[in-house]
Every structure is written in structure tokens, then in C-alpha cells.
Amino acid sequence: MKKLLEVKNLSIRFETKKGVAHAVRDISFDVFEGETLGVVGESGCGKSITNMAILGLLPENAIVTADKLEFEGEDLLSLNDKSWQKIRGGKVGMIFQDPMSSLNPCYTVEYQLNEVLKIHRPELNKAQRTDKVLSLLRDVGIPAPKERLSAYPHELSGGMSQRVMIAMAIACDPKLLIADEPTTALDVTVQGQILDLLAGLQKSKGMSVIFVSHDLSVVRDITDKIQVMYAGEVIESGQTDKVITSPLHPYTKGLLDSIPSFNDDKSELFSIPGIVPDLLARPKGCQFAKRCFNRSEKCDEQWPKIEQREERTLRCFHPVS
């Protein structure tokens, strides 16, 4: 398989009045062709900001450093605005969490889909664009697509809006699709349909997908690889089934144990004590040490390095055995 995206030691920091906030610290991962990578972690752990870096959508005051940030061998860090346009929406598509607020309420579905094609497929004429828009709407399973063309976002339900967002994201046959919590705002019945749709599209178009979610049961079912993030670091990554069935990092184990299991066990849930560290005042050692059940003095003093262990990468001195 070919390597599509390569990220090596990516760090993103913000200089604020109160000091420097390291939103993402030293993360490395690859995405291969046709593969699905799941990203999980609590709010504020750097999941979304990593995706923004891949899309060049970070705010101006963000300082990005990386040994490598390459898409299809092209260095993303040296791109100018014009070259970014080719990647964004062209080779990399993005689906956001809340479909209602990511569509422009003032324009029709047709206008918004057309816009993508106008920018990325200038060779198409008006009639060809309309045909393409209709076929996209059919691809994402919107019934009676012709009638939906003139609809405004408020006339669509949550599931329908998310389908339109997906149509926009796949309009230019991207090689990589980034789905940032695509089903969190949707009902569980709709969630199932959208996940099926994404899986089907991925197969038929041979896309790679980065799937960000806090819902571990969804990530387990649809991803090949998984990476667990905590306070802007990747603390464990590997094959999804391995990480889920035998987590090595105490944080991964804690996350899995705090979900009520679907059986008759009604005993007290495991809960991770405390809260995530303040990014402006990071602890010196392991970022998770304060909340960890397996820590030693070393964890408070030293920052654990990334290691390879049991076919996965891990940042921990005392893995769960």
C-alpha cells in the first residue's frame, strides 16, 4: 500500500498573553491508501486542530513545526495559499461535526455544491456541473435529488444536511476524507445510516478516511487503525482491535472501562479521577500522571518517549500488562 499522508513530530503552539500553549506536541502518524484511521480522546486533546493543520485551516497565530508533513510526497508546510486550494476540497475532503452550522443558510443546496465544482473543476460547463451535482446527491442517498436542488439548509433534516456535507466533501473525488465527529450531532438511527454511507463510499471510491470521534463503539466498528490522544499527544496507537481488546496505556484502559458495558453488569463504573491539564501550565513529566492509577515518581519527573511495543506505539513508562 502507498503512503498517502505522513506526519512526523508535528507540534502546534499558540502564543497567548498568558504564555505559550502547546496544543499539539510531537505527534507522528501515517495514513495509507484505502485505510481508515480512528482518532479518539477527550475534548481539547488536539484531535480537531491536527486535522486543521492537514487542511491548512489553522488560525494565523498558530505556530506549526514538523519534521515531516507530507501529502502524496508533497510538503504541506511550504505550500502557498494557491497550492493549498488544490489540496483543500480537492485532494482532501472534510466533513464537520455539526451539519446545520457548516452549511451556509443563505444559499441553496445546488449553489453550495456548485461552488466546490466551480473552484476545483473549472473545465466543467454549467450543464455538466448540474449533472455532477445530481449524481453526487444520488451517491449520498438523497431521495428526489432534483427537488432538493433548490432547497435551503433549514428545509433539510439533520441527516439530510450531513448527506449534503458529505456530497460536498466527495465532490472532487478526494484521496483522503477527514470526518470530524460526523455523527455526534445526529440521532442514533441516522448515525447508523451515515456510517454505512461513508463505508460504502470509501469502498467504491477507494478513499482513505481519518475518522475523529469520542464514541469508541463506533470507532471500533469502522476503523483499521486507531490513535488515542491526550493533552495534544498521541499516547497509544495501533491496530484497532488490538488497542481496544488489550489497551496498554492506562488512559486508553480508563477510557474503555468508563463506558457502561452492554451486559448485566451494573456495578460501579471505573472513572478516571481529575481533569485534563491546563495547556498553559503543562506538567513536566507524563501529561497523564496526575490522573493515572499506575504512576511512579519517574512519571512526574520525566516525559516518556514514544516507544514501539507489542506492535503499537506507546508513550508510557508503566503500561498495563
Binding site: E42, H214, L216, L255, L269, S271
Partner: peptide, 14 residues
């Protein structure tokens, strides 16, 4: 709430 916090609140409610 995040899952780890969700577990804390569910335990408290019980």
C-alpha cells in the same frame, strides 16, 4: 460530557 467525566457523574447519581 466526555466519557471519563460521564462515568464520574453516573457513579455519583447511583
Amino acid at each position: 460530557l466526555d466519557v471519563s467525566i460521564q462515568a464520574q457523574i453516573l457513579n455519583l447519581l447511583k
